[in-house]
Design a protein around this nucleic acid. Structure first.
Length: 822
RNA sequence: GCCGAAGUGGCGGAAUAGGCAGACGCGCACGACUCAAAAUCGUGUUCCGAAAGGAAUGUGGGUUCGAUUCCCACCUUCGGCACCA
């Protein structure tokens, strides 16, 4: 009887070994088939595959398998995002070299990934910390530099005092502005750093019209980019120095009664009068001392000081005082604003506090005339312009930007008179990529006292990491403390020079890994052109939504930049994106070691087998939503697979069975096939498994009615296993083989729906009286409207509820219901 | 404050295109098998009601013959952004 038992451990090992030996999941260029590039976000080699990885990857794998069966030449690669802080922090703690630790973790995780039985093509694996990989990461940096898209700038940057490195704006999260990785609140530091000009692509990044990405991600990215339309206007100081401001409300220019500059604004010192100097200096000092958290707290009372200087409002030549205040940020717009207290809440609060003039210039229709002296709040709605010279009476509606005709008219006038022009402004900042850490790709730049910064020539790439470094959490890159590594010669003049000792943000590495999968063996270029032309773009990208404003925006930028440098084609790297939700612990909290609620996939595989774990992860929640883990629920998936096993290994039990039984089986079979196919298309994995469970229940009943051994039974088994194969690849392969069918089930085609078989011959009509269910009647599927209504009206239950009244109206929905209205 | 998503049994979740609410699974209850337990199989399981019947998809309105589904207002939870000029 050993043969009959479902021994998942042996079965899974056996087939994994055979698939590997046969190269069943190798994908190569094949012009005879349509290609399909399925990509799942690559893991960081933490050393343990998390249930979250399984949750993300197994449905992605099932979908890739489904597409393969649909006739596509599918590539589903995997690799490791191997650079990053955890390995280096561990080195500081334990002294184990990140290279060693990462290598060991990858070996362990490869094994864990293989236990999933996924169709990864391991020949295409890439590891971002491999010099063969980061050589090209560095090469891309050089290309960006040569094309003016990488630049170095001294600027106040976010610095995590725990991770001892700078962070990109995207990596600073939450109200308290903490480090995305370790949760420590960040501080500001003035540092000379490398940036990528992602802002140059802001407008293009807002265009999602050619890609099928979830609305959620589009919204997050759109908000993150934060585009606003308005005008840039030049004010002048009394001394004649221009001060450029950005405003979304040029229609309120006539109400600008003072200006406010950020304390760091370069003109502050020049404008400040001798009498105000000490006060201004004190304020600047205080602002610099404050953390961003304090400074950017919304509810904080506005403070500021007068510089003693004046500017001229260019639209009406009025003389307005110039203040400095920390509610104006040097990092947005131009670091200077015109203040229109009558129509801006912040300016209003500031004006009232410091007794500055409030001048209403937008009058709401049909309301008493606004009076600047008595207004209790800024008026921010629409109306008509007032106190605005020739524009008086111009209608200003609530719409923003150039779509507002009143604002547009003012902007055109500004342009004609050389006062200002149409302008856009963005929240998006350039991408800061310098990291003061060791475990990353060194930035391939050399500084020479005579020649300045020069990129490392291509033939000297990669700039490899030295292995003999000391682990000290100093806030400086260990590369800087290395005695010799930084010494080199200038690529331009040949004299002694120094290397850049910062490394790159790891998001740079992950911005192009999908290109390395095309040909990780390629020595002469980042990717092989023929492979690129065949496989790109990525057809489906799956992964977590937490990367919406980080990786997913960087990789789009990267692709567009590469396109403009002539390296890639097309505007977008990934055609379709789908995000999974998160698996929480059983306590409904985020899984973490400290909470002790982590679910180990290894143990589950040991206890239930990979197929059951896969099935359960696809079944237990809506994939895009995620849900708390339920350790008991997996029993249901386990039972399902065991019941499939029992039924499919059960010898035929010949018996009498009616034609109707056979027909009913085929009907259910093909109806299920229709649903499963539709759900695979829509990434609705939970209903795929439940449909298969339902069909299995029906097959059990049909077996008891004597169907086993018939042609209809054989067809059902055949199609059942093919539908099940993407979900549970091992057990379906085993049962397929036991039925004597040709290896491998995974190279079979997806079954075709027999519409005729799926068609219902009889339907149950719902009979309602006044919209309430009163009866159900079974009629032939092709019943006529008159017949259906007649049968419904003849129903005893209906008669009872009609209580002798005559129907006012009888609604008939074909094949569904009759509703009698009285 | 702004933007977005989600609210359905004890639980996870189903419900083509506005048409049988609660599929499938977990859990629970009872039964069969067993000396017993596990496993397995069977029956039941939204609430109220003895039943007939009634109520019910966050709340309140609306559209409709008919609303979990569409519209309006609100509440709650989660995620993102936030002195952005």
């Amino acid at each position: 009887m050993a043969d009959i038992a479902y021994n998942f451990t042996d079965i899974e090992k056996k087939w994994q070994k055979k698939w590997k030996a046969d190269g069943l999941y190798h994908s190569d260029i094949d012009e005879s088939k349509p290609k399909f590039y399925a990509l799942t976000m690559l893991p960081y080699p933490s050393g343990d595959l998390h249930i979250g990885h399984w949750y993300a990857m197994t449905p992605s794998d099932a979908r890739a398998r489904y597409m393969r069966m649909r006739g596509f030449n599918v590539m589903f690669p995997i690799g490791f995002d191997a650079f990053g802080l955890p390995a280096e922090n561990a080195a500081i703690k334990s002294g184990v070299h990140p290279m060693k630790r990462t290598g060991e973790n990858i070996v362990k995780m490869r094994k864990q990934l293989r236990s999933m039985g996924a169709m990864f093509d391991w020949r295409r694996e890439m590891v971002s910390s491999d010099p063969e990989y980061y050589k090209w990461t560095q090469w891309f940096f050089v290309q960006l530099y040569k094309h003016g898209l990488a630049y170095r700038k001294m600027s106040p940057v976010d610095f995590c005092p725990n991770c001892n490195t700078t962070l990109a704006r995207e990596q600073v999260w939450g109200d308290d502005r903490h480090c995305e990785r370790c949760g420590t609140p960040v501080i500001k530091k003035d540092l000379d750093q490398w940036f990528f000009k992602i802002t140059q692509y802001a407008d293009e990044l807002l265009d999602f019209s050619t890609i099928d990405w979830p609305d959620r991600v589009q919204t997050l990215q759109t908000n993150w980019i934060g585009r606003s339309e308005g005008a840039s206007v030049i004010f002048k100081t009394e001394a004649g120095d221009p001060i450029e401001i950005f405003t979304t409300r040029p229609d309120t220019l006539w109400g600008a009664t003072f200006m406010v500059l950020a304390p760091e604004h370069p003109l502050v010192d020049k404008i400040t009068s001798p009498a105000q100097k000490s006060e201004v200096e004190a304020y600047k000092f205080e602002a610099a001392r404050q953390s961003d958290i304090d400074r950017e707290a919304v509810d904080k009372e506005k403070t500021g000081v007068w510089t003693g200087g004046y500017a001229i409002n260019p639209v009406n030549n009025s003389r307005i005082p110039i203040w400095i205040a920390d509610y104006v940020l040097m990092t947005y717009g131009t670091g200077a604003i015109m203040a229109v207290p009558a129509h801006d809440e912040r300016d209003f609060a500031f004006a009232r506090k410091y007794h500055l003039l409030v001048m209403p210039v937008i009058q709401p229709e049909g309301q008493p005339k606004l009076d600047g002296a008595t207004m209790e709040a800024a008026y921010i709605g629409g109306g008509y312009m007032a106190n605005s010279g020739q524009f008086n009476g111009t209608i200003i509606n609530e719409e923003k930007g150039r779509k507002n005709p009143g604002i547009s008219a003012v902007t055109q006038w500004l342009e004609k008179n050389g006062i200002g022009k149409f302008a856009t402004s963005y929240h998006l900042r350039d991408w800061l990529i310098s990291r003061q850490r060791y475990w990353g790709a060194p930035i391939p730049m050399v500084y020479c006292k005579d020649c300045g910064w020069n990129p490392v020539p291509d033939d000297q790439l990669p700039v490899t990491l030295p292995e003999d470094v000391e682990w000290k959490p100093t806030g400086e890159s260990p590369l800087k403390l290395h005695p010799t590594w930084k010494n080199t010669t200038c690529p331009s003049c040949g004299k002694p020079a120094e290397r850049e000792t910062d490394t790159m943000d790891t998001f740079m590495c992950s911005s192009w890994y999908h290109l390395r999968y095309l040909s990780p063996w390629c020595k002469t270029a980042p990717f092989d052109e023929a492979e690129y032309n065949y496989w790109m773009p990525v057809d489906i990208y799956t992964g977590g939504i937490e990367h919406a404003t980080m990786h997913l925006i960087y990789t789009r930028f990267f692709h567009k930049a590469l396109r403009d440098m002539g390296i890639t084609e097309g505007a977008e790297p990934m055609q379709q994106l789908r995000n999974q939700g998160m698996v929480l612990g059983e306590d409904n909290e985020k899984m973490s070691k400290s909470r002790g609620n982590v679910v180990s996939p290894d143990e589950l595989v040991k206890a239930y087998g990979a197929d059951t774990v896969r099935a359960y992860l696809m079944f237990f929640a809506r994939w895009d939503m995620g849900a708390p883990w339920n350790s008991k629920g997996i029993e249901g998936s386990s039972r399902w697979i065991r019941r499939v096993w029992l039924l499919f290994t059960d010898p035929p039990r010949p018996g009498k069975c009616s034609i109707e039984t056979k027909r009913a089986l085929r009907r259910r079979l093909h109806q299920t096939l229709k649903r499963v196919t539709r759900d695979f298309e829509k990434f609705e994995f939970n209903t795929i498994v439940s449909s298969l469970m339902e069909l299995l229940n029906d097959m059990y009943k049909a077996r008891d009615e004597g169907v086993s051994g018939t042609a209809e039974w054989a067809e059902s088994q055949d199609i059942y296993l093919r539908m099940m194969a993407p979900v549970a690849p091992h057990v379906s392969e085993e049962l397929w083989a036991r039925l004597g069918k040709p290896y491998s089930i995974h190279t079979q085609s997806w079954p075709v729906v027999d519409e005729e078989a799926a068609r219902e011959e009889e339907v149950t009509l719902v009979v309602q009286v006044n919209g309430k269910l009163r009866d159900r009647i079974t009629v032939p599927a092709d019943v006529s409207e008159e017949d259906a209504k007649a049968v419904a009206l003849a129903s005893e239950a209906v008669k009872k509820h009609l209580e002798g009244k005559t129907p006012k109206q009888v609604v008939y929905v074909k094949g569904r219901l009759v509703n009698i209205v009285v």
